[in-house]
Amino acid sequence: MAETEWEPKIVAFCCNWCSYGGADTAGMGRFQQPASTRVIRVMCSGRIDPLHVFNAFLEGADAVLVTGCHLGDCHYVNGNEKTEVRYQFLEEMLQELGLESDRLHLNWISASEGERFANFIRDVTAKVKELGPSPLKPAGVS
């Protein structure tokens, strides 16, 4: 792997009902994507703790994706509205830390939106490739 082009490492938190399904649908539709992303499944995007996101950056993530159901479609009534509030907090914190805004993304993706999921991964990967490795990435981590 060492000789090939640098591939960023992106952690994507996906909710069980929508965005994880969207990632599944992307697979079923064979929408090819860069192999940059590692999906972590939670039941609701409302379970995504800023702690998890910071941890991902500290462990070496070049970008973190927070994803869930479209607003109004949350399987748990309004978990994603809470996600949105927490995301705003995260955004501000990362700004304070000096991280580029393209390293953190919030996206609502339904279980049927496979192509949208794939495009999202492609776009973020391309942007992060331009930025280079995260300044928070510990030395020696791949």
């Binding site: 972590i40 939670v42 998890h52 070496g60 791949s142």
Partner: peptide, 18 residues
Amino acid sequence: FKNDQLLAQVKNVFAYGE
């Protein structure tokens, strides 16, 4: 989906060395 379960996953996204 406890914190230690999720954080174990997060930690293991990454590796030191090959």
